[in-house]
Amino acid sequence: MKIVVIGGTGLIGSAVVSTLTEHGHDAVAASPKSGVDTVTGAGLSDVLVGADVVVDVSNSPSFEDAAVLDFFTRATTNILAAEASASVQHHVALSVVGTDRLPTSGYMRAKVAQENLIRASSIPYTLVHATQFFEFFSAIAQGATTGDEVRLSPALVQPIAAQDVSAVIARVAIEPPRNGMLEIGGPEAFGLNEFVERGLKARGDSRSVVPDEQAPYFGALLHGSELVPGEGAELSSTTFAAWLKS
């Protein structure tokens, strides 16, 4: 099976390509590095020749509201059009738990726009909604830091290891399309502030983390469980403590 992975050289994409290749599939990493630009459409037609499945795990280089919306709408429109021409049978896209619960977040609005384009297309699809990755705790802290203080919402998160996300994406890519959504998350839920604080302490970072209900996350205020997967979600087994030790 030929599976093209858009964003195939990134954190998730590279692991997906590796896993699929190990299982005997023709997994192709497509990114600007390989001459594929989804925003302009350059290289898409060539890379999708003979493709059975397309996996899109790409992300916007800018999280500014207008830029991120432009990225996901242009890229997804181009990908879906190229898939239709190439008779691709399954479109798999990685998205975020809580996209439809945080309309004040420009990033989440952009992901909703992406998902709506996928649902409206003629291509059979599967959307994978993942929670925050363990790997992102440092970036979350950096974006919330003023001086030596990190202010973050105590709202619940249920983060997951990127490797576990990649394993699910690779598995879903070779399964029949769901024409629906699969939610995935880690095994434990705790406050966003606690998540980052534990990560910083484990790395010897002396910044203090302050719980602040008014601290925005991607431009939105959190009120409790917007970022936690719902009933029926698929939960991984890797704990944050185990990931930090590894």
Score class of each variant (00 low, 15 high):
Val28Ile: 13
Arg198Val: 00
Val39Leu: 10
Gly232Asn: 07
Gln163Val: 10
Thr38Pro: 04
Thr99Pro: 00
Lys245Leu: 15
Ser122Met: 05
Lys245Gln: 15
Ser208Gly: 08
Val55Met: 05
Ala220Lys: 08
Phe71Lys: 10
Asp205Thr: 03
Gly199Pro: 13
Asp26Val: 10
Gly10Arg: 06
Glu234Leu: 15
Arg74Gly: 03
Gln158Phe: 01
Phe63Gln: 09
Asp37Met: 04
Gly8Tyr: 09
Asp37Glu: 11
His129Ile: 00
Ser34Cys: 10
Pro187Glu: 12
Ile140Pro: 01
Gly186His: 01
Met181Gly: 02
Lys201Val: 09
Pro124Gly: 08
Gly24Cys: 12
Ser121Asn: 06
Ala93Pro: 02
Asp148Lys: 11
Met181Tyr: 00
His23Phe: 13
Glu83Val: 09
Thr145Val: 10
Ser138Pro: 09
Glu194Cys: 00
Gly41Met: 11
Arg74Gln: 15
Leu20Glu: 10
His90Phe: 09
Ala27Ser: 12
Ala27His: 04
Thr40Asn: 11
Ala220Trp: 07
Asp205Ser: 08
Gly43His: 12
Thr104Lys: 13
Glu234Val: 12
Arg101Asp: 05
Phe63Leu: 14
Thr73Val: 12
Ser60Tyr: 06
Phe190His: 14
Glu175Thr: 06
Gln214Tyr: 12
Ser166Arg: 03
Glu194His: 09
Ala155Val: 01
Lys2Leu: 06
Thr21Asn: 07
Met181Glu: 13
Leu44Pro: 13
Gly7Tyr: 12
Glu188His: 08
Gly147Tyr: 06
